[in-house]
Design a protein around this nucleic acid. Structure first.
Length: 216
DNA sequence: GACCAGGCACATC
DNA sequence: GATGTGCATGGT
């Protein structure tokens, strides 16, 4: 097939390079991956800014920070009590297994690491894969609500298929190319924000000439 | 004021 | 296994 290749090219031409993940160390990206769960990125940026300003954007400081203090710093990102616990759980894992060193984590076998990440409270498939791809540069495709929405609307894959089903579609069709995975996922977010929204604006969909009218 | 945003865990049936 | 709910801020 190369429907997925064609869609990638169309989206890239329409929206251009997205420059994900914006700024930051690998550790900061893992923190961002947790903070952005079901949350607008602009709110996450405020929380990241607070953590930086407090000198807390490193594993040791976060590890030793009381949960209520962490929650206060990340308040703008929403779900702050939940996310404070999740960040603590992740940082605890990072300290225990890799001495707080993301480079050591990167050296771990990808499949093994993914399983370990998924076993951490508050880290599901999307967050784990975001960490693997954007923080550690592993060739793992990230599936999110946008990806599912765009693909299902255009009848590429049914919305009720599993995360794994969607992910395997990309892994099989595109080869394991981390740079393209990075860009492609970001492009799904771009198209999901402009036309393939919850309330669609299909008149401006760049995919329509290729795929026809979305099945809504 | 309703809707939406780069999910996940948990309860219930 | 499927479905529903709590978590919460800030922009549109």
């Amino acid at each position: 097939m190369d429907k997925l290749e064609s869609i990638y090219k169309i989206l890239y031409k329409a929206f251009g390079p997205q420059h994900w993940w914006p700024g930051g160390s690998p550790f900061e990206i893992t923190v961002g991956a947790i903070l952005t769960q079901n949350t607008n990125w602009s709110n996450v940026e405020k929380a990241i800014k607070n953590l930086r300003a407090a000198g807390a954007m490193n594993p040791k400081r976060l590890h030793h920070m009381p949960p209520h203090k962490l929650a206060a710093l990340i308040r703008p990102a929403g779900y702050f009590n939940i996310k404070a616990k999740r960040l603590k759980a992740f940082v605890h894992f990072l300290m225990e297994h890799f001495d707080g060193n993301t480079t050591l984590m990167k050296n771990e076998d990808t499949d093994m690491l993914r399983e370990k990440l998924l076993s951490i409270h508050g880290i599901g498939p999307e967050t784990a894969d975001s960490m693997l791809l954007y923080a550690l540069g592993k060739p793992i495709f990230v599936i999110d609500a946008y990806t599912k929405r765009v693909l299902s609307r255009h009848n590429i894959m049914s919305h009720d298929k599993t995360y794994k089903d969607f992910q395997e579609l990309f892994h099989a069709a595109m080869g394991r190319d981390r740079k393209r995975y990075n860009e492609y996922h970001a492009l799904f977010v771009a198209v999901g924000k402009t036309c393939c929204r919850p309330k669609p604006r299909c008149n401006v969909c760049p995919l329509r000439p290729f795929l026809g009218n979305p099945g809504l």
